[in-house]
């Protein structure tokens, strides 16, 4: 990298989805807002879902979402791809297909135009891969650069997947490994290995499209993407929204080994602690070691899908996922809620 080139991540105060406002804070902020009631709004903010879904006709619903954040990678083209992958993911998490997108961009006034162009090129390339059209956008001047997309997609109104439909007996499937946030945090002090960073970038730029395309063929009852609120945060929202509890086998989760090592050394993002504060009183950690728990609370940027699938379809869907998603994992089950904890962590397969 030439000396006069900007080190993008140095301009960011927080990294990627770690920059998200905590889930508890959001609920408080929006609690007393006046909102129109409309029977066609199938999914709104009330269940803390990934995107809004609005029924247009009996066979068509709009899926809308927006996501943007400060640089998580120094290469502007990679940053653009990551931001777009992350924004598009919310549509996939609802079982939808993204169709239109708008750029949202904040740029420092002295940022070289090639850098801005590269960020945008990353976004356009991912939107193209997703089959979506970027049809416009808005940019403002800001000391801290930011990029993302507002995405509109379509889904059949009866096939929109929410995070609140999980049923006791469902099997939980996850489609990407965990630990991305820890790797990008360690990268800020140049501790992440080249292999570790390559893995993080590959994961953050892999669309959840294939996972979505497989998922919609089976009896899926609930889905969410695992992003800033971590597996525990998003899992908790699924358990609460569905009035169930989740039993998770930690040994069956693909935890990136390098991330576990960093967790043991205290190299953890601030978002991990925010997620803990939000969720840990609902989580029974069992015998799971602290460092492994920490990875379960690690905020993921452009993480995988967490899917609750009918037990009759679980094995077939799991087999079909293998090779099509970065890491297919069968991590636990949905159970009837007994009061008390919402998530139970278990060791041993």
């Amino acid at each position: 990298m030439a000396e006069n080139e900007v080190k993008l991540t140095k301009l960011a105060k927080c990294a990627g989805c770690g920059a998200k406002v905590g889930a508890g804070v959001l609920a408080q902020l929006l609690g007393d807002m006046k909102v129109l009631r409309d029977p066609n709004l199938l999914v709104g903010f009330d269940k803390s879902d990934d995107a809004s879904v609005y029924k247009v006709s009996d066979d068509l619903a709009l899926v809308q979402t927006v996501d943007f954040f400060p640089p998580i990678h120094d290469d502007p083209y990679i940053f653009g791809q990551i931001a777009a992958t992350n924004a598009l993911s919310d549509v996939y998490a609802m079982g939808g297909e993204p169709k239109l997108a708008l750029n949202i961009m904040a740029v420092p006034k002295d940022m070289p135009s090639e850098t801005v162009h590269e960020i945008l090129r990353g976004g356009y390339d991912k939107a193209y891969e997703a089959g979506a059209i970027i049809s416009g956008g808005h940019s403002i001047l800001d000391d801290e650069p930011k990029y993302g997309l507002a995405v509109t997609g379509f889904v059949h109104p009866e096939k929109a997947l929410t995070n609140s439909g999980a049923k006791p007996g469902d099997v939980l499937i996850l489609t990407k490994p965990l630990g991305i946030g820890i790797l990008t945090t360690a990268a800020k002090v140049n501790m992440t290995s080249k292999e570790g960073m390559d893995l993080a970038v590959t994961l953050m730029t892999t669309l959840n499209k294939s996972a979505r395309d497989v998922m919609v063929k089976y009896r899926v009852h609930a889905c969410t993407d695992v992003t800033g609120f971590s597996l525990m945060g998003h899992g908790l929202e699924m358990a609460q929204g569905s009035n169930t509890e989740l039993h998770i086998r930690v040994d069956d989760i693909d935890l990136i080994p390098e991330a576990v090592e960093f967790a043991k050394m205290g190299i953890l993002p601030e978002g991990m602690y925010r997620n803990r504060n939000f969720a840990e009183s609902y989580v029974d950690p069992g015998e799971v070691e602290l460092a492994y728990q920490d990875v379960l609370y690690d905020p993921q940027t452009a993480g995988g899908l967490l899917i609750a699938v009918d037990p009759g379809d679980a094995e077939m869907m799991f087999e079909e996922m293998k090779g099509k998603v970065p890491s297919a994992q069968m991590i636990g089950t949905v159970e009837e809620f007994h009061g008390g904890s919402r998530i139970f962590l278990k060791t041993g397969s």
Binding site: A263, K264, M265, G266, L268, E270, Y273, L290, A291
Partner: peptide
Amino acid sequence: AMVCVENISRYAAS
């Protein structure tokens, strides 16, 4: 910052 207290405490314990 509290996050630094937590991170250092984890490392120290290890």
